[in-house]
Design a protein around this nucleic acid. Sequence first.
RNA 1: GCCAUUGUAGCUCAGUUGGCCAGAGCGGCUGAUUUGUAAUCAGCGGGUCGGGGGUUCGAAUCCCUCCAAUGGCUCCA
Length: 652
Amino acid sequence: MNDKIVITFPDGNKKNFDKGITGYDVAYGISPALAEQALAVSLNDKVCDLYLPINENVSISILKRSAEESLELIRHDCAHVMAEAVQKLFPETQVTIGPAIENGFYYDFSRKKPFTVDDLEVIENKMHEIIDADTSFIREVWDRGKAIKHFSNIGEQYKAEIIKELPESEEVTVYKQGDWMDLCRGPHLPSTKHVGKSFKLMKVAGAYWRGDENNEMLTRIYGTAWRNDKELRTYLNMLKEAEKRDHRKIGKEMKLFTFDEEVGPGLPLWLPNGSVLIEELERLAKETEQKAGYDRVKTPHITKGSLYEKSGHLSHYKDSMFPAMDIDGNEYYLKPMNCPHHHKIYASLPRTYKDLPIRLSEYGTCYRYEKSGQLFGLMRVRSMQMNDAHIYCSEDQFKEEFLAVCKMYLKYFDIFGIEKYEMRLSLHDKDKLGEKYVNESELWIKTENLVREALEDGGLNFVEIPGEAAFYGPKIDVQVWSAIGREFTLATNQVDFAIPSKFDLTYIDKNNASQTPLCIHRAPLGTHERFIGFLIEHFAGNFPLWLSPMQMIVIPISDKFNDYAVSICNKLKDNDFRVRIDSRSEKMGAKIRDAEIDRIPIMIIVGENEVNSNTISIRRKFKGNLGSLSIEDFVDQTNQEIKTRSFTVKNS
RNA sequence: GCCAUUGUAGCUCAGUUGGCCAGAGCGGCUGAUUUGUAAUCAGCGGGUCGGGGGUUCGAAUCCCUCCAAUGGCUCCA
């Protein structure tokens, strides 16, 4: 009885087997062909080696190459094969870790001379040899002491360090492939040939040992690996398409913004076309906030250090601030956030419960010192305009105010057609109170509960992330994914329970008692820089009409119709459309082509027919020739489209 | 900030075993053409080869250094 086990198959069938049987044997029992194709088994939903002895009752499923789980195995094994190739070619290299990741894998190596892109081809060729040799992956369980000694002896200090820090409960396993081996938890494929050839080494990068910037810099090689060549090609093609949407490339093409070495890194210059985008976003935000009861304020860009000492910025946020400048013996800082100024505006008048909630908004430019290596187009800059506001309210009002802000996010996402997003509730880490976070343990817990409740009551989906809160309170970040698959925090929403009291912000409640308000920081459009960077990639530069820097272009068919075209253009300008005329002595086809390349949504073509019938002919990007109509009808239709901020044009 | 790569005309890019006045396409300018839904033809301009220093008879090309960008690491809106 002890030497028999029951294995349950995916279809629910159960069968008895001898204890110690392997997944391969089970598969072979079904059909030899299946055993040949099997890469691994899933035992009770845990992926395991095909040759691992099975000693207890389990449910099994045989994983073939086509299985979703196989991808991770292929990628992980590809990392191992790469590590072997690297050590064969460059024996002075130490190995560290090499996991499978989204779309591929990487392996971190320690070597005095970092690898360069030129090494990649050589390594790839060696990998092909290893895969062709088809050596088996063999799992061995080692004694901990023996393993540490072994890896120390062969000069693999990092591996020895990893083993030392493995929990006692965990077995130390080593996988051999031919004469090469690696410390690894597994699972692995049966042999190297199963890795296949649908992989490509992509790039080299530096990476800190254990992700800590105080540690040694290792050299990381990234690769991508897939089940077959078709998947690989699709992925590489996707990368190529994504490149075309890169906001830096489109920004240049459309003359939206620029950076200038003499101005400084991370300091964008907004060109006229890009400024239209900012102004349209502002208009949207101002309209929305006007209706939602916000008051607009303006505050200065520099401020005395003492204010930031009070707010806690100098103790918690100084690394992200530009250094102080000396003005008349006082230290002044460029503002990294608007909140202290808004607190001062709140404090400028006595407040009562009848005044609350007070919602102060500002399109303020803030300055943050970002380390040079992390600047990235418009997405990470050093000067940024925020769609910022602070809501001061009583605890009773909190939930309603908070949810109203969340709903505002959703309204914006609807306008921009943002479908994939995730709300993240970032919580504090109690081990870092007083260090990374203001030291108010009870208030943290209380506020976090308040926020969680509000989110739950509002029926909003969210995930919780420990240790990512702002220094003054929990925050809700809204992550969105751009068309290129890059992930960004666009909007942010934070609750501040600590600073209002530091600023002695008060209001008189119904019982004539003095109370401290809660403060909600919110920026639904985040910074305009990042938001626009995102929108460029999202729309691939083909903005909806209301946002388009140039909305329409009038194209006279020949010089003979220039006068008519000018009169049309003027009428459209009178209606506040952004329009220009293309009166070059070019053929119509050329003018249309240029307008298409410039991503102008509407082309207005006028020639003899239009002059005679007093009409205009409309061509729309992505739709082509729409025929002719009167200018009045066109103005009405177009106004409607702009006013409702609709986006009828789907990107292709 | 750290590791790697890159920097040539407004844009995209050739040109590197160091050697004739540094090239192309597009854009621009001028002229011709007067055009019906994605490129009319011809001519002409345009470059401190990222900045500085060095090696050399000679540097876009080799070396040093600074700046900037790109891909990552770390950090973040």
